[in-house]
Amino acid sequence: MEVRTIKVFTTVDNINLHTQVVDMSMTYGQQFGPTYLDGADVTKIKPHNSHEGKTFYVLPNDDTLRVEAFEYYHTTDPSFLGRYMSALNHTKKWKYPQVNGLTSIKWADNNCYLATALLTLQQIELKFNPPALQDAYYRARAGEAANFCALILAYCNKTVGELGDVRETMSYLFQHANLDSCKRVLNVVCKTCGQQQTTLKGVEAVMYMGTLSYEQFKKGVQIPCTCGKQATKYLVQQESPFVMMSAPPAQYELKHGTFTCASEYTGNYQCGHYKHITSKETLYCIDGALLTKSSEYKGPITDVFYKENSYTTTIK
Rank of each mutant, 00 (worst) to 15 (best):
A205F: 02
K280R: 14
K191E: 15
T75W: 01
N111E: 05
Q30K: 12
N309A: 15
K127F: 11
T19K: 15
H90V: 12
T11M: 05
N147I: 08
E204M: 04
T103H: 05
S310M: 14
Q238R: 02
L290R: 11
K95H: 15
K158T: 08
C156N: 10
K191C: 10
P300Q: 13
A87R: 03
T91Q: 07
Y265W: 04
V160K: 06
Q195A: 14
N110E: 07
C182H: 04
A247Y: 02
G257N: 07
M245T: 02
V160D: 03
C225Y: 02
E264R: 06
D63C: 09
K106M: 12
A136Q: 10
Q230T: 15
Q98E: 06
K201G: 08
A177I: 03
H74T: 09
F56M: 12
T43R: 11
Y137V: 06
P47Q: 04
M245D: 01
T226S: 13
K307E: 07
F174M: 09
A205V: 05
A40D: 14
V42D: 01
T35V: 13
Y96W: 04
G164Y: 01
T103P: 03
T75Y: 10
K183I: 10
Y311F: 15
T282E: 11
C156A: 08
E296P: 09
Y297N: 07
T19V: 13
G194T: 03
C271R: 15
Q134L: 07
M170D: 06
S86V: 10
Q20F: 11
I152R: 09
G29Y: 09
A289Q: 08
M85C: 06
M244D: 01
S79V: 05
L59D: 12
L133W: 02
I15T: 12
I315V: 13
A132K: 07
C182G: 06
K293G: 04
R139W: 05
C227P: 01
T198A: 08
I223Q: 12
N16W: 10
N100T: 13
Q30R: 15
I315T: 15
T19G: 14
T5Y: 09
Y72H: 14
P131M: 04
R4N: 14
G82P: 13
K229R: 15
K293P: 09
G143R: 03
L102I: 06
L173M: 12
A140H: 00
V304F: 05
L17H: 14
T35K: 04
D180Q: 10
N110F: 06
E52D: 11
V243R: 01
C261W: 02
A140T: 09
F148L: 14
E253K: 07
N309Y: 06
T91A: 06
Y73E: 02
R139G: 10
E308R: 01
S310P: 07
Y234A: 04
Y96K: 07
N147W: 11
S25W: 13
C225L: 01
D135V: 09
S240A: 04
Y113H: 05
A247I: 07
E71N: 09
T159K: 15
M245K: 01
I315Q: 15
Q31Y: 14
P241F: 04
Y269G: 09
Q134C: 09
L179G: 07
D180G: 09
A231H: 01
V21W: 15
G29A: 10
S295H: 12
V188M: 08
P47D: 09
A117I: 10
L88V: 03
G228F: 08
G288Y: 00
N49A: 13
G161K: 06
T278R: 04
G82A: 15
Y155W: 05
K7A: 15
R4S: 13
V188L: 09
E296N: 10
S240D: 01
A108I: 06
T35I: 15
G161R: 00
E296I: 15
M245R: 05
E144A: 10
H256E: 08
T314L: 15
V58P: 07
G143A: 02
P130D: 02
T91D: 02
L17G: 10
